[in-house]
């Protein structure tokens, strides 16, 4: 209820701001909604949203998989941590734009270059978060599993992953928001489709309504994923905490 009220307030504030500065500079919510419907009817909206979502999914999966594996090893092995830490610091502080531009220069304006560049931007974030989780693993549970000779795979699945779950969730949530932002830059700079490409094209024509239409559609998709996928998954993974509380 409070959330709906909050959304309502946002729309009202938007409308008020539109009246204040004029529809040319800030189109009203109804105008933007009309543009969304028109783009959807033409099929362009779904084409571009689909392309962006596919890039997000691939680069996010790649970064999370690699980042989790590297972060886990770094958290458990001090030598590996010391060896890889300087690389991690460099990657953490490298601007996203530099990585994207270099990827396009070195690998061409290809899909692989775009996805790779987005994944590299997200990777250090996942590594750092999972490394903290791996450092915080409870050694007494590890000993218990070791005494009972529990096979490595079962140990990983039932002892390690549940302990890492809050860190993975935090990494996924922050990572997803990071990837959403970076993917648009990558599309703007070197892809022939996607929300970023469309926003770039609209910018050339100073078409603010279309920019907002795509931004709004994109935000709705992100919010839906958060509400329908991320939050239920998080609740399921932490159900034992709720019951124990």
């Amino acid at each position: 209820m409070l959330r709906l009220l909050s959304v309502g307030l946002f729309v009202l504030a938007w409308q008020a701001a539109s009246w204040r500065v004029g529809g040319q500079l800030l189109p009203a919510p109804a105008t933007v909604l009309g543009a969304v419907v028109a783009e959807a009817r033409s099929g362009a909206l779904f084409l571009h949203l689909g392309a962006t979502l596919a890039r997000v999914a691939l680069s996010f999966a790649l970064a999370m998989t690699l980042g989790t594996a590297i972060g886990y090893v770094m958290g458990r092995r001090r030598t590996v941590d010391r060896l890889a830490d300087p690389w991690l610091l460099i990657l953490l502080n490298l601007p996203a734009l530099v990585v994207i531009v270099l990827a396009y220069v070195w690998a061409g304006l290809t899909e692989a270059a775009a996805i790779g560049a987005i994944a590299i931007n997200k990777l250090p974030n996942a590594v750092v978060t999972v490394r903290e989780g791996a450092r915080a693993l409870d050694p007494t549970l590890d000993e218990m599993a070791s005494v009972f000779a529990v096979p490595a795979w079962r140990r990983l699945r039932h002892v390690v992953v549940p302990q890492l779950a809050p860190y993975l969730a935090a990494s996924a949530r922050s990572g997803l928001s990071l990837v959403w932002k970076i993917v648009l830059v990558a599309e703007l700079l070197g892809r022939p489709n996607g929300v970023g490409f469309e926003i770039g094209a609209a910018f050339q024509l100073f078409d603010i309504t279309r920019i907002l239409a795509y931004a709004l559609s994109f935000s709705v998709v992100v919010l839906s994923i958060e509400l329908l996928l991320v939050q239920p998954l998080e609740r399921y993974a932490s159900r034992w905490r709720q019951r124990a509380a």
């Binding site: 007494t140 549970l141 218990m144 005494v147 009972f148 000779a149 039932h158 034992w240 905490r241 124990a244």
Partner: peptide
């Protein structure tokens, strides 16, 4: 030999 051990603290998996 299979070992069964009871530690000083129960060491149960809280999520199971």
């Amino acid at each position: 030999a299979r070992i069964g051990m009871v530690f000083q603290e129960p060491r149960l998996l809280p999520w199971r």
